[in-house]
Design a protein around this nucleic acid. Structure first.
Lengths: 114, 114
DNA sequence: AATATTGATTACCTAAAGGTAACTGATTAC
DNA sequence: GTAATCAGTTACCTTTAGGTAATCAATATT
């Protein structure tokens, strides 16, 4: 039997997993969309997404910030307020999301018929 | 203060999550690539992916089959052998994967500099 | 003075994903 | 007849994601 050598696919798999870590999970995309639509403040974002808890939101915001998808700006009026905004880097996800969405729609038709 | 109405984004989020459920997770993409490269048999696939256990492989193969991304064919020579192959539907993931990969590469540069 | 809002943090719990390892029954090679 | 290979299954355990609820300090409202 011929021994086949398995191609090294880390150069595909690792970047794909990086991307999935960022928009995967239950809330990240919803939070990004909410901020992109203009919700700037913690409570505003929280209220805009049903069932999302403060704890999870706080954690997700930190991760999104660490990945440079959002910015956290401290506005020092009195009292200080915090404003979250999406970065250009986050906007560059648009094409990725569009592909994921369009394949998902086709897939649903494939699995559940038209 | 103006009350802003939050746009309904389920038509984006649900298909995106459908897609992520299918190629997300630690192994699904690796398994798909392995089969696409010509590994047809259970043990062959298992051996081609370091650290992948039989249990997880068995579970993932079932899910991939349920999603019509692979086919499981029972070849009844003696002894019976099982052959896995990728479907056309799986091949249609190529563009999605390419987008995820390319964004992941850019992201890595963004985060860790050049 | 009491209550509510803002931007969170903390402790505790559950559910799901994934890992480890032993084992099955059928067949084939030594 | 012993060992190995094939295609898995089963039981048990750990890790991670996410949920629930209480609490915090600072300010603002009644």
């Amino acid at each position: 039997m011929e021994k086949k050598e398995h191609k090294d696919c880390t150069s595909v798999v690792i970047p794909v997993r990086d991307t999935l870590d960022i928009i995967g999970g239950k809330w990240k995309l919803l939070i990004l969309i909410s901020i992109a639509e203009g919700n700037k403040h913690f409570r505003e974002i929280e209220r805009s997404i049903p069932k999302l808890s403060t704890k999870v939101l706080a954690k997700e915001l930190k991760e999104l910030e660490a990945n440079k998808l959002i910015e956290r700006n401290v506005i020092d009026d009195f009292p200080v307020r915090i404003e979250y905004t999406v970065t250009q880097h986050a906007k560059s996800l648009k094409k990725v999301i569009a592909e994921l969405q369009s394949w998902g729609v086709k897939h649903r038709r494939k699995i559940f018929g038209k």
